[in-house]
């Protein structure tokens, strides 16, 4: 596969969230506000890119029967480093994300990319694959976070967007948007729109 398609395919045609349906749990959990969604996306990009490169570099030395354990050790190490960095440099966000940074370890996208790509490819394509999939994941997170924060809280990144006169005229924030189930509905809507634009993703009747 050309490097270009390795990088760009996960944005749409091979998106980890809306085509492969991986990593849904964290999409539900961290998208009530836009800011944690962006930080979570950046964290996943960083962890995914570096773990892909590291695993790709050592892929020929890993004993086959413990390869999953090796992958987990590498991912867990990187996740703890990211979590420590956030606590030191973005304390408020790290409090909002709380356990979900730690749960990147169990994010299916990571194990999926390591096992399916990094174990069989050279470091540079693996790096592109990691960043590409991370961005594909982040795109969905940001779209969902955008709608949930705008409709649920009337703000974006903490700034008031819906003007006060709307509230005075009887507009109310949609409390359902704050709750996790609404993320599932939004993801389903994104999948619906995405598939109707990509006929080749639709099953033959």
């Amino acid at each position: 596969m050309a490097n270009k398609s390795v990088f760009f395919n996960p944005f749409s045609k091979d998106n980890p969230v809306i085509v492969q349906i991986l990593g849904i749990c964290s999409v539900l959990a961290v998208t009530a506000k836009l800011e944690p969604a962006i930080v979570m996306g950046l964290s996943v990009i960083a962890v995914l890119a570096f773990s892909n490169v590291i695993i790709s570099l050592i892929r020929n030395t890993i004993p086959t029967n413990i390869r999953i354990i090796v992958q987990l050790v590498v991912v867990a190490g990187l996740v703890v480093i990211v979590s420590q960095l956030l606590q030191a440099y973005a304390y408020d966000v790290s409090k909002q994300l709380s356990v979900f940074i730690g749960l990147i370890i169990t994010n299916c996208i990571l194990m999926g990319r390591l096992e399916a790509f990094a174990m069989a490819n050279r470091p540079w394509p693996s790096f592109l694959d990691g960043v590409g999939n991370g961005i594909g994941y982040t795109i969905i997170l940001v779209i969902v976070g955008f709608f949930r924060e705008l409709l649920g809280s009337g703000t974006l990144l903490g700034f008031q967007i819906v003007p006060q006169c709307f509230y005075e005229a009887g507009y109310v924030n949609n409390g359902l948007m704050i709750l996790p189930p609404m993320a599932l509905v939004l993801v389903a809507c994104i999948i619906w729109v995405h598939r109707s634009f990509n006929k080749d993703l639709q099953e033959k009747q």
């Binding site: 030395t61 004993p63 413990i66 090796v70 050790v73 590498v74 190490g77 703890v80 480093i81 420590q84």
Partner: peptide, 21 residues
């Protein structure tokens, strides 16, 4: 080989984490 491999890996990762923390 498997045992030595995992021991070396864990020591490297452990050192990196201790240094970061």
């Amino acid at each position: 080989y498997t045992i030595i491999y995992i021991i070396v890996l864990v020591v490297i990762v452990g050192t990196a984490l201790a240094f970061t923390a």
